[in-house]
Design a protein around this nucleic acid. Sequence first.
DNA 1: CGTCCTTTTGAACATTGTCAAACACTGTGG
DNA 2: CCACAGTGTTTGACAATGTTCAAAAGGACG
Lengths: 236, 236
Amino acid sequence: MLLGMPESDYPDIRGLHLFEHMSDEHFSALMRGSYVQTFPPQIDLISEGDPSDFLHIVLSGSVELFSSWNNRETTMATVWPVSTFILAASIKDAPYLMSARTREKSRIALIPSQDVRGVFSTDHDFACAIVTELAQCYRSVIKSQKDNKLRTSLERLANYLLRQQIKSNGAREFELVLEKRKLASFLGMTPENLSRAFKGLKAYGVIVSGTKITITDQADLETFAKPTPLIDDYAI
Amino acid sequence: MLLGMPESDYPDIRGLHLFEHMSDEHFSALMRGSYVQTFPPQIDLISEGDPSDFLHIVLSGSVELFSSWNNRETTMATVWPVSTFILAASIKDAPYLMSARTREKSRIALIPSQDVRGVFSTDHDFACAIVTELAQCYRSVIKSQKDNKLRTSLERLANYLLRQQIKSNGAREFELVLEKRKLASFLGMTPENLSRAFKGLKAYGVIVSGTKITITDQADLETFAKPTPLIDDYAI
DNA sequence: CGTCCTTTTGAACATTGTCAAACACTGTGG
DNA sequence: CCACAGTGTTTGACAATGTTCAAAAGGACG
């Protein structure tokens, strides 16, 4: 563990909306107390309930956010480069509500939460950026909540596939980025149920072969899935 | 509709964390463009998808936030005085993700979103307050998400009752504040299922009579419900 | 080619949702 | 004051959905 962020990582982090408009001085101050570490796959980075010592940034690899209760576990989200996670806990100086583990070998930047709060309280641009980021996060969870409460598992899967397809530039054929067992958990079902849901979507022109998805009848799937920007758009 | 907020409403609004620390000047500027209106019960205040013209504040009465998709509807939250709602949409200048209707006769303050964004971009204290508020909102939804994904409907109801009990000063006996059909929707089940869930909690010392709940065996219910601050605490 | 892990399949089971009807509560108007 | 309509809640029977458990099939990797 080397204190002080390597300058080579600055551009990636600086490019995030969160840090884009803050002064060089404040940015450097944040970076000074930070460090970067490479973790192997399946390493627990944080545990829910722990005090939020660091704001985390995924520089490479990917991270699973999950939660547990009463011996059950559920996947809440997956974080891809370059983005932060557990911003809300860092800001509020409150315990993490989710745990995080690496999905693969990953480079993670760690910025002391105290420094984040310090700069936040003096740098107006940074505060504004945090507002935008948090508002975005909030709206994402609300959409996810609507997805879960208003749709059946088959409908959730259908819409998930359509969203993934868009991320894959709308190609007829694309790869699942999540392990199926994790995807099941993310969508709020069991792996067995997911497997059957994939079968159920065959009727709407979805072909599954390993991690490869082919949508043979776009219109048919969309008619069934009924995607809406108010649940499925990442942008707004 | 009278433009300009009546001064008699200032203290209530000023007392919110959101507006507590901002300058008098900025607060007055916000209030100048705002107005207060009293609505009858069951009036739609906003519809999801609409542009977010106003930040809303419930001064009296109460408001239901709900969402719809494909002819289904679900209750997302209930807002009590004095609090704001749809802050994230106002800030991001993005469409509402939820609809809102009065549950009863309610006094609502409306602050033009544009003014909120204007003051937000110049008043650092206000920006900080918004960050705190949004972080709080975000964490609440995450908790709700965990509640939904990690617990069965019986467990959700049990924990909901324990939370309500705390809000009622921990009394053995307290009143439900929501109509049962809305409570069912909020907890992600049908009214019929809720009715049976109440019966199911009789085994853990819960007696239901109309809207009156009596918890006869606190320890037993808690052993079953297993509440945790990471899901059930409003504070953190 | 085995071994380990994930995924799939099948069957039994549990939970939840749907529909219809009965019941309870509230407020209205005779 | 009572009958009555209207709404919300409860109950019962049933259907649909989702879970569990066990076992087979498929893939990845040494």
